[in-house]
């Protein structure tokens, strides 16, 4: 690398170096997307109950991360960072759409479309999640679908550890009340 820079004329050398740096950055970023995209999209889905919207939210999250990549690629907990960007996108979307209720369509609509035999329980959980507040839902998804520690969840959502614990136990009991006996105690 040093050789080329010395050998090439000043401007050409800079241009080539910058192109190489961009190519390396893009490759690193692409590897990150491929390694984490599925998990992130699934969490997005649990938040919004819509795979297409989940795809949009994930895409948006990665675009924001690419815009900040130089700054965050070293030393930042990328996993937690991506969750924070995602959750903020979900919260924004929710605020913009209605101000109060869940991000997406009405519940009955979804239930009708399901084929009950295979997906009853699955839908039950996703629909029950949708009945919680968006913050409570975020706590459950991060804590139980993603297995983050209480401390990490608190960092991602900008809440205190005790607030996360409180929301978690409150949301779990709501979930249990909605799902009845199908749902494990803990």
């Amino acid at each position: 690398m040093t050789d080329t820079r010395i050998a090439a004329p000043m401007l050409g050398g800079w241009g080539a170096a910058r192109r190489r740096a961009k190519a390396a950055r893009d490759a690193e970023f692409t590897a990150f997307v491929e390694a984490t995209g599925v998990r992130l999209r699934r969490s997005a889905y649990l938040m919004c109950r819509d795979w297409h919207l989940a795809q949009d939210l994930t895409q948006h999250t990665f675009a924001r991360m690419y815009a900040a990549w130089e700054r965050i690629r070293n030393g930042t907990n990328l996993d937690a960072y991506s969750r924070r960007v995602l959750m903020n996108a979900v919260f924004d979307q929710q605020r913009r759409r209605s101000g109060s209720e869940i991000v997406l369509a009405d519940l009955p609509d979804r239930a009708d479309r399901a084929s009950p035999a295979t997906s009853e329980l699955r839908l039950a959980l996703v629909d029950a999640l949708a009945r919680l507040t968006v913050k409570d839902r975020a706590v459950l998804v991060l804590r139980h679908a993603e297995d983050h520690s209480v401390e990490t969840v608190a960092a991602i959502l900008g809440l205190s550890v005790s607030a996360v614990k409180m929301r978690d136990s409150r949301a779990l009991s709501r979930l249990r009340a909605l799902l009845g006996e199908d749902f494990p105690d803990r």
């Binding site: 893009d26 970023f29 692409t30 997307v33 491929e34 995209g37 599925v38 999209r41 699934r42 889905y45 649990l46 795979w51 795809q55 994930t58 895409q59 948006h60 990665f62 675009a63 924001r64 991360m65 690419y66 815009a67 990549w69 997906s119 329980l121 699955r122 959980l125 996703v126 999640l129 998804v141 139980h144 679908a145 297995d147 749902f183 494990p184 803990r186």
Partner: peptide
């Protein structure tokens, strides 16, 4: 509980990820 959440995303339609990185680079 974890298994429940796993089952809840089991119908992931699996949109391709390779285009996603490229699109994020452009948009980012």
């Amino acid at each position: 509980l974890r298994d429940h959440f796993e089952a809840a995303v089991s119908d992931d339609p699996g949109f391709a990820l390779d285009g996603m990185a490229q699109a994020a680079i452009v948009e980012g």
